[in-house]
Amino acid sequence: MELVPQLIVSGIAAGSLYALVAIGLVLIYKATDIVNFAQGESVTVGAYMGWLCITQFRLPYFVAVVLVLAGSALVGMIVERVAYRPLLKSPPFTVILATLAVGLIIKNAIRLVWQDTPRTISGVFSAEPIEIGSVLITPERLAIMFTVALVVALLVLFFRFSKLGKAMRATAQSQEAASLMGISVPGIFSKTWALGSALGGLAGVLIAPLVGINTELGAVLVPGFVAAVVGGFTSIPGAIVGGILVGVLENLGGVFISSSFKQVVPFVVLITVLMVLPTGLFGKPLRKAV
């Protein structure tokens, strides 16, 4: 039982990355009603960009992070323009398939350029665990948690105080009213995709030093989808709580049930939530409208 605090802390560390992916999903979904099944690939893109910056261009890690944010945002905008803008009036179903296709395209494009060879980058923080109280944690995990917390704080400020942030919130609530204010809704869509992809890319460059880089990296953060659902898919705090919850449950399940089935835990959580509480922990109940 003395393991429990340790499991919870490392669960939070993993969960903070899930949360980052989940926030990206939630932002895009709230603004555009699209669940981006290619969000995992934006994680992969971020990791490869980081690798390119650090090992090929010999840039410092921090510079790489900034470039990854910008590059991922650009990829997000391009993908929105090319793949999703033409499908604005298509049924949700078609758009889901389109995001899956985009995911495949990105994955295979990367594979074509850099093959399946795994890559690595080293972070700036040590992977040597330190002891805090009774809990062991590596400085690089701590740095990730700190970074995610910082990003969340910046996002909160952005949405609360900046003009663009307010326009994004407004558009998410009513596209029609937003356009009556003079807000260009397509412009907001494009910027939202940029932001969502940037968050995915950030998750990629953060996790890359820990697990290495390959074209399947996106799959590592699939529990981020579960986190978004647990949080109700429309709320940023929900995504954070969901992420941490999934990270912790996964760790506990891995130890107390079976380590080989650890990966199933998030999906059991997902199906349970969908069956019992389809609007998640933070979603608002909807009255079925006709």
């Binding site: 669940v35 099944f37 949700p92 179903f93 889901i96 989808f225 659902v229 997902l270 969908l274």
Partner: peptide, 8 residues
């Protein structure tokens, strides 16, 4: 809805 069904 269909998005959640895809996830499930």
């Amino acid at each position: 809805s269909s998005h959640y069904l895809a996830l499930a």
